[in-house]
Design a binder for these strands. Structure first.
Lengths: 255, 255
DNA sequence: GGCGTAATGTTAAAATTATAACATTGAGTG
DNA sequence: CACTCAATGTTATAATTTTAACATTACGCC
């Protein structure tokens, strides 16, 4: 980790900032060093730039880890979330207006929306908006405001009211913590307004959480379990959930 | 362009939707075909997926052409825009609250914002928001609404009013057409409201346009040249501009 | 100035990926 | 049922990228 090395990385970072790729050959020329040096820089210094088949690429998309391998991802929590979302998607119907919550849980759901003819998605999360923007069949409504990087979402005073003015059919909510007695919680306070508004206005309310969230409490409560019509989760041992909330008041769906 | 081929592409698109890369080997296995077939699919069908050193990658970032080569880009209009933005950036000061217009013109500007200590960026464009979201030193305010894919931006009734409630320092506006007599125009009508509001409320108004826009008229007029304090452009022959608007009423800056 | 070390450059071999040519399969048609 | 053609698979070869080992340069220090 050299001083010049860092300088070169910064230079390349800037060159790649607006997206695209840069051939190792060109990168070397740009910095006035050999290709080997660029290689060493990249392998030595931790950065958002990675080398893919002789080309430098950067994940300029926020909320997305640089360039990771999907196969790795599938081994961690990704498969669980994908299963949850598959199940959650089965509740979606043609023409629905969906509220999609922020976080990473519901991201795999979005690619499944392409099989519908017409949908509307309402969200306040940048990563959700990005995924939906790529779908030509889905109308996207993004609720803006001040950006909170930690949750890749926006917050503003009037957001709750704005949500309630929309005709939201189904609210798909995720959470960072679910406690059967204390309720459902998330990390950030600015998420409380939109979540509650969506729950209040939607005709059907789904909570999508993987089993690791059960028994966990986070700083901001935003609902109790009874507020949801359907809970989609992946572990039948979700502690005490079925016993406390027998069907049909609360339908628990195991993905 | 086969039916099955399209199906495979959709499958891969889905797998890559949440970002990341997929090895050609894994993609072939996933689809149950040979690697060669995947290769052929990718080269035959137009899609957002591209093959980079044996790995499939997708530009999940909207507003960004799949995976293009920076060297190509630099040869076309990219260098011009980069120069324009460099010049435009010289007007930015520490602590500014900037309104950044939609379009591709101002994208190269955003990577230059990292050298400031503290800034606020107000925008209604998704691609701008994505670029800014990656900058830890810039506060981001996104004005939401219904998404218009063609301009990667949002539109809503109240947006103009919302903009005027913000303390915007400098408005950086781009345009699709500039005619010295008829005024400044853009393609989409939903852009008119935010642009006009930003011009109305900002303390300093910059128009950033490359020379190819001069003498061109687009469907939606939103301002006249006199509304701007500074015009940043790249061609001194920008027809009749200097003659009609001598300094200091309108300062024309050549990048 | 001579020495030592870190950074960089060069080269050759190994691994991987891309391309092209040809073989095989398989569904539709007369 | 044989024929045809498009789709897919296989193989060999070419091009490229990656890795490792070693040569060179540059800079600080005694």
């Amino acid at each position: 980790m050299n001083d010049r090395s860092a300088q070169r990385m910064a230079m390349l970072q800037e060159a790649l900032a607006s997206g695209g790729t840069l051939h190792l050959r060109d990168a070397a020329e740009l910095c006035g060093v050999s290709e080997m040096t660029i290689r060493r820089d990249l392998s030595t210094q931790p950065s958002a730039i990675s080398l893919l088949g002789g080309r430098l690429v950067m994940a300029s998309c926020p909320g997305v880890t640089p360039v990771y391998d999907l196969t790795e991802q599938q081994s961690s929590h990704y498969q669980v979330k994908q299963r949850l979302c598959q199940r959650a998607a089965s509740f979606i119907e043609e023409g629905d207006t969906l509220f999609i919550d922020c976080g990473s849980t519901l991201i795999p759901l979005l690619s499944q929306l392409s099989r519908f003819h017409e949908l509307t998605v309402v969200t306040y999360a940048l990563n959700v908006a990005n995924a939906v923007a790529a779908l030509p069949n889905v109308r996207l409504v993004l609720l803006g405001g001040l950006f909170y990087a930690s949750s890749q979402s926006f917050g503003s005073d009037g957001m709750g009211a704005a949500i309630e003015r929309l005709g939201i059919n189904k609210a798909l909510i995720s959470a960072a913590g679910v406690d059967c007695e204390r309720g459902v919680s998330c990390f950030h306070f600015h998420e409380v307004g939109p979540k509650q508004a969506a729950i209040a206005t939607a005709m059907q309310r789904l909570l999508i959480v993987d089993a690791s969230k059960f028994g966990v409490v986070r700083p901001a409560y935003f609902a109790s379990l009874e507020d949801f019509d359907i809970v989609v989760t992946d572990d039948e041992r979700a502690p005490g959930l079925l016993e406390r909330h027998p069907l049909p008041t609360l339908s628990v769906t195991l993905a």
